[in-house]
C-alpha cells in the first residue's frame, strides 16, 4: 500500500496558542480518512497544512513520499473543497469549474469537454452559466466538488463540506461523496466535527483534541475500543467511571460503558452480571425509537441507559424511583488518561 500523505511531527502555534502539537499521521492511497474533533481541536489547521495554505513551525509533510513542506499549494497535486465553498463570485459556474484548466492553459476544446463531463457527474447540466449567487446551497456544494475534481487530483481535502446543508440534503450528499470517491478512486481527507458522519463514511478516523491526535483507528474500533476518556466521551453516548470510582469495581484504570450494555432491574434479582449499581432516575428523554433514561448514583457521573420504546415488555420508569443497574466486565472499555 502506498502512503498518500505523511505528517511527520507537525507542530504549529499561533502566538501562545498551540494549535497542533507533534502530529504524526499516515494516510493510505485510496483511503477515506476523517479528521474528527470539536471546533478548535486543530483538525482544520491540520488540513490547511496538508494543502499548503499554512506552514508549520516544525515537522514535515510528505505527499506520495515526496517532501512538500515548502512547496506552495499551486504545485501540490491535491485539491480542496472549502467549508464556505469559496466559489469565485465574479465567475459563472462554468468558469469556476474550468478555472484550473484555464490556469494550465489546456486548449479550449479539451476544457469544454472536461467541464461538460464533470457537470454531468455532479448533475449540474443546465446550470453552467449561472453565477454562484444564483444557486442553492446544495448546488454550490456540487460546483465546489466539480471544481476540485476536474483535475483528477490524487488527494481531495474536504473541510466540513456538508456543514452548511440541512439534514436531509446532508445525508444524500454523504452517499454521493462516497460514490464519487469510489468512482474516481482517490484519497479523501475529510474534516468534520460530526461523529455520525465520520463513523458512517470513513475507512479510518483520527480523533483530534487540543491540537493532539487522541486515536487513529477504524470507525468500529473508535466506537468500541476508545483509548482515552476523551474519545469515549466524544463518540456516541457513554458513561465514564474515573479512576477513583473504578477502584470500587476492583479496576485500576478508569473505564467507560455504553448505554446498550446496561440493563435495568427493578429489584436486586438473581442476575449473573458482574457489576451492580443502585441508582435513581432523574430524567427520561424520548428519542423516537428508544428512551434515554438518565440515572444518578453515588458515583461521580450520571449514567445513561437506552430502553427500546417498541419493546412489548415495556416497563414505565418513574422519576426519583430507585433501580438496580447491571453490566458485565467484558463490556467495559479500559481507558488511558
Amino acid at each position: 500500500m502506498t502512503n498518500a500523505i505523511e505528517l511527520l511531527g507537525i507542530s504549529k502555534s499561533y502566538g501562545s496558542v498551540q494549535a497542533l502539537n507533534n502530529i504524526h499521521l499516515t494516510i493510505n492511497d485510496g483511503e477515506f480518512f476523517s479528521l474528527l474533533g470539536p471546533s478548535g481541536s486543530g483538525k482544520t489547521t491540520c488540513l490547511k497544512i496538508i494543502a499548503g495554505f499554512e506552514g508549520s513551525q516544525e515537522g514535515h509533510v510528505k505527499l506520495f513520499n515526496e517532501d512538500v513542506t515548502l512547496v506552495p499549494p499551486y504545485k501540490r497535486d491535491l485539491n480542496t473543497v472549502f467549508q464556505d465553498y469559496a466559489l469565485f463570485p465574479h465567475m459563472s459556474v462554468r468558469s469556476n469549474i474550468g478555472y484550473s484548466l484555464r490556469i494550465k492553459k489546456v486548449n479550449l476544446e479539451e476544457q469544454n469537454k472536461r467541464i461538460d463531463e464533470i457537470l454531468e457527474t455532479v448533475k449540474l447540466i443546465g446550470y453552467d452559466l449561472r453565477k454562484p449567487s444564483e444557486l442553492s446551497g446544495g448546488q454550490r456544494q456540487r460546483v465546489a466538488l466539480a471544481r476540485s475534481l476536474i483535475n483528477k487530483p490524487k488527494v481531495l481535502l474536504l473541510d466540513e463540506p456538508l456543514g452548511a446543508l440541512d439534514l436531509k440534503l446532508r445525508e444524500q450528499m454523504q452517499i454521493e461523496l462516497k460514490n464519487l470517491q469510489r468512482k474516481f478512486n482517490i484519497t479523501f481527507i475529510y474534516v468534520t466535527h460530526d461523529q455520525q458522519e465520520a463513523l458512517s463514511m470513513s475507512d479510518r478516523i483520527a480523533v483530534f483534541n487540543n491540537g493532539r491526535v487522541e486515536q487513529i483507528d477504524t470507525p468500529h474500533n473508535i466506537y468500541n475500543k476508545p483509548k482515552t476518556s476523551f474519545v469515549a466521551d466524544f463518540i456516541g453516548i457513554t458513561t465514564i467511571f474515573p479512576k477513583e470510582d473504578a477502584s470500587q469495581f476492583n479496576i485500576t484504570k478508569s473505564f467507560s460503558i455504553r448505554p446498550e450494555f446496561i440493563s435495568i432491574q427493578s429489584s436486586s434479582s438473581s442476575s449473573s452480571k458482574d457489576f451492580k449499581i443502585k441508582a435513581k432516575v432523574t430524567d427520561i428523554q424520548y428519542q423516537g425509537s428508544f428512551n434515554k433514561i438518565i440515572f444518578e448514583s453515588s458515583f461521580r457521573n450520571s449514567l445513561s441507559v437506552f430502553q427500546n420504546t417498541n419493546n412489548n415488555e415495556n416497563i414505565s420508569y418513574k422519576i426519583d424511583q430507585e433501580y438496580i443497574l447491571e453490566f458485565d466486565k467484558k463490556d467495559i472499555t479500559l481507558l488511558d488518561d
Binding site: 490547511k48 494543502a51 499548503g52 495554505f53 506552495p72 499549494p73 499551486y74 491535491l78 485539491n79 480542496t80 472549502f82 467549508q83 464556505d84 469559496a86 466559489l87 469565485f88 478555472y99 484550473s100 484555464r102 490556469i103 494550465k104 471544481r147 476540485s148 483535475n151
Partner: peptide, 21 residues
C-alpha cells in the same frame, strides 16, 4: 472570503495569476 485566494492557489494559480484572476 479569505478562502478565495486559497482556492485559487489550490487550483494551480500562482500568486500573480491569483491576483489577476
Amino acid at each position: 472570503s479569505p478562502n478565495l485566494v486559497q482556492a485559487s492557489m489550490d487550483l494551480g494559480a500562482n500568486s500573480f495569476q491569483t491576483f489577476y484572476f
